[in-house]
Write a protein that binds this DNA or RNA. Sequence first.
DNA 1: CTATGCAATTTTGTATACCAGAGATGCGTT
DNA 2: AACGCATCTCTGGTATACAAAATTGCATAG
Lengths: 225, 225
Amino acid sequence: MAQNGKLATDLVQKLERDIVTGVLKPGDKLDERSLSERFGVSRTPVREALQTLAGSGLVATMPRRGTIVASITVAELIEMFEVMAELEAMCARLAARRMPRVDIDNLIALADECSALQEHADADAYYEANVRFHEAIYAGCRNSFLERQTKNVRNRLAPYRRLQLHRPGRVKKSNNEHADILSAISNGEADIAGKLMQQHVAVQGEALNDLLAIVPRGYLEPLAS
Amino acid sequence: MAQNGKLATDLVQKLERDIVTGVLKPGDKLDERSLSERFGVSRTPVREALQTLAGSGLVATMPRRGTIVASITVAELIEMFEVMAELEAMCARLAARRMPRVDIDNLIALADECSALQEHADADAYYEANVRFHEAIYAGCRNSFLERQTKNVRNRLAPYRRLQLHRPGRVKKSNNEHADILSAISNGEADIAGKLMQQHVAVQGEALNDLLAIVPRGYLEPLAS
DNA sequence: CTATGCAATTTTGTATACCAGAGATGCGTT
DNA sequence: AACGCATCTCTGGTATACAAAATTGCATAG
């Protein structure tokens, strides 16, 4: 999409990965000079990269005050999860209608992978497999624009979403929900698949309170922005 | 969101307006040098602005080959309308549940405005009022993230959406649909409001063919990207 | 007359230098 | 001792200069 120069593109990908995987945490300062030295390029491509990331919402830059990894407010977090749930629901609905058999078989394999990892109570490994399962459904909707939009929101929520699974019992519950979603998609029951996915992703009531309770300091900023 | 320098921000807004309002058409070349001369600034803020616009998808830049106003493929157009319909449907659903009375009254006024303009068969004036009506519903969903996402997609579709209303009879039909949507929102019937909005925005079957038929040359590019 | 290849020009991508604004720090005054 | 103002420094914003790549046009050969 944002096709900048080669150096800048590389930087975008590296920084994106670091942010999504949690190496860089919300609130971390991204100094242009240090970045340019660290990567051995001038400030220009660094600025372009930060610009691009700001466009996708992963970082926030205040004029004359520098750039930081985007930290969002509680209100925004709730809003974004609300939208995320609906986008994924749409993916699931469309996937139920459009996903070819061979891809469904692949989806089944990914679900099995999740189940296998769930036994070992390794939240991080499960998280990775979970991402693959969800991405397979994004791809199944056969709407690459929707797929991009969904991934974009997912990336922005990644630092927070990762925390969810560290709640005791959540991994098991998540895995059970996968089974139901999978069967709905496999049976072509679009509305059911959508509804299940919506509930799977939405963070409401108790779950929201639990999530907010374990969000580290600095991941959220006060409402006054 | 993308807080760049003052000059760059100005440029973003100007170019955005020109693209959304159709002054700049899909496929138009955006030369950095001419733009910098035209606005009396150096190339740097121009590049930043183009970068930002590329991030939001309004322009496309190919490395070493320059930047043009984004022209999308038929496939993308269909995909984007599909997502747009769902985003607006979500706005309508939430608006039906959350919109305060006073805002609904305002929405009624906007619908009346549309009706009044519809009589005069002035497609452009109707288009503007139509935008205000829809934006009031975006605001009514009380989810500013969803509002931003929706507006972003809407902007990208603007050059094509504008064409829709020039189809004979479409304005009248659109206006009738507004009335139904309005009453559903007013009555708090979320699912109905969503469904109506989805159908209102979606471009399917005959309507899609009609739209494609009147899209000017250059607005669409061949599928091979 | 056409096609291919080379060269020149145009335009983008990168680096660097310069400028301006915001925050920090220290000194003076009350 | 505390508050306020001024200055100083650090960081971002802008301009410009330079390098690399792509397109275009012309020339030459088939």
